[in-house]
Every structure is written in C-alpha cells, then in structure tokens.
C-alpha cells in the first residue's frame, strides 16, 4: 500500500536557516530520510519551494485559468512530501509522526489511488 505523507506548516513558524533550531530540523530530516530509505519503503520525497512560487491551475469552460498562489490561502501550506510504501494506515501514521515538522506543523496522509489496468 502506498501513502503520500504531505508536510504542512506555516512558513513564518519554521526555523530560520543559520539558527540552531534549523540545524536540528535538518538533522531530524536527514535521520528520517535515512530511516525510510534503509527500510526500502521510500518511493520518493521532495521539499517544495515557498508558497509564493505556487500557481494554481483550473480549467473552466475549456479555458485554462491560473491563479498566482496556492489552492487555499491558509497559514499552513504544503512544504514537502514523502511517498512511502508500507502495509497499513497504522504504519503510515507511525512514520508521519516521525517527520520533524509534525512537531510544529501537520502531516496529511493520502492513500495513493491504484488504477485498474
């Protein structure tokens, strides 16, 4: 079963580069990434550029509309993700709780859709 772990946090609340907190956060992410890699359950992961770089696209009546900004303007924004392959939702929750940002942001878990061949 594949799960996408989406990392949400308020950009303003994130530790700033150069501070001790930032160093700790980075070390936390390195450790987490190494853990899921070594267990062979990580299928992909990326950090995202800040919210200000986001574009939302929708098509209405055949016309493509772009909106400068994220889908919903909320304080907490998608900052990155891990795509993990684990057995059940319980394991996905367990790993989500280990992502360092879980301590000040939120992690959304989305089961990956399996398409019929």
């Amino acid at each position: 079963m594949q799960y996408l772990l989406l990392i949400y946090n308020a950009e303003s609340a994130s530790p700033k580069p150069g501070t001790d907190e930032f160093g700790k956060l980075l070390a936390g992410y390195t450790a987490f990434t190494e853990e899921v890699q070594s267990k062979n359950i990580m299928l992909g992961a990326n950090a995202l550029q800040p919210l200000s770089t986001a574009t939302t696209v929708k098509v209405r009546n055949g016309k493509t509309e772009c909106i400068d900004g994220p889908f919903a303007e909320t304080k907490e924004a998608l900052g990155g993700y891990y795509l993990l392959d684990v057995e059940t939702l319980d394991e996905a929750i367990e790993y989500a709780a280990k992502i360092p940002t879980a301590e000040f942001g939120s992690i959304e878990i989305r089961p990956i859709m399996v398409w019929d061949k």
Binding site: M1, E87, T88, L89, D90, I109, P111
Partner: peptide, 14 residues
C-alpha cells in the same frame, strides 16, 4: 478500505 485501516488488535506500542 481505501486508506487500509488495519483490521487487527493493536500491538503493545499502540
């Protein structure tokens, strides 16, 4: 079903 919430008795940690 879709999120595969396990059908089991939780282990000690949970």
């Amino acid at each position: 079903k879709v999120a595969n919430i396990p059908y089991r008795i939780p282990d000690e940690s949970l």
